[in-house]
Amino acid sequence: MVNGNPIVEGFIEAIELIIALDPQVVEITIRSLYVSLTATFFAALIALPLGALIYFYEFRGKHAVVSTLQTLYALPTVIVGLVMFLFLSNIGPFGFLRLLYTPGGMIVTQTVLIIPLLMGLTVSALSGIDRDKRYTITALGASRLQTVMTIISEARFAVMAGVLLGFGRAIAEVGSVMIVGGNIRGATRVLTTAITLNTSMANYSLSIALGIILLSVALGVNLALSLVQRR
């Protein structure tokens, strides 16, 4: 082993950990993907129809709703973590669900975290369909429902890009999963919380290994995003 620089050593050890498929690394990675993918799935299930409703229906305060959503894009994750902690803890209204310090609780929290982002991006994806296209759909004799379906299908790539962004925000955030999940080894430890902990314990090699994995996931999301946006 090269003597001296702990960073270089840590980096080499990290590569070894990844290549050897270290069980701890694999377990944390899988949990991280599981939590954030599930959260993205449920968030999309809720946010896409709601976003579409906001876009297609005219109501008072529509503009205010859209601005609020856009403000919530930047919602601090620790705030969401704190609020969800209070909701899910024994003193909170949803304490009976026993979700605090479980992956289930982390999924719910990340779902809440990215719903505004997915809703807002759905609204702007649908708004990206210009007026002339909407006139064309109407002129071709589409019923109300057919119009909605055509516009959604036309905006599908932009909507998909929004979902990918949501996933990216979920997997990369640390604040809320730390508070709600508690970073319990073998139960609620995910990539970001593991990196935080191991770094503070000077366990650099594991941190770097997990960091490389997190970066590659982020890179993969970006790659998929640019593929989608090119359509």
């Binding site: 002339d132 296209k133 006139y135 064309t136 759909i137 002129a139 071709l140 004799g141 589409a142 019923s143 057919q146 055509t150 036309e154 790539f157 359509r231």
Partner: peptide, 26 residues
């Protein structure tokens, strides 16, 4: 009735699916 607009408008789909739109609506 039918209308053709000034700016060429096509949807992000095949030429076939574009032309079929009105018939599918009907």
């Amino acid at each position: 009735m039918g209308m053709l607009f000034q700016r060429p408008i096509v949807f992000n789909a095949s030429v076939y699916d574009n032309v079929a739109m009105g018939l599918r609506y009907r």
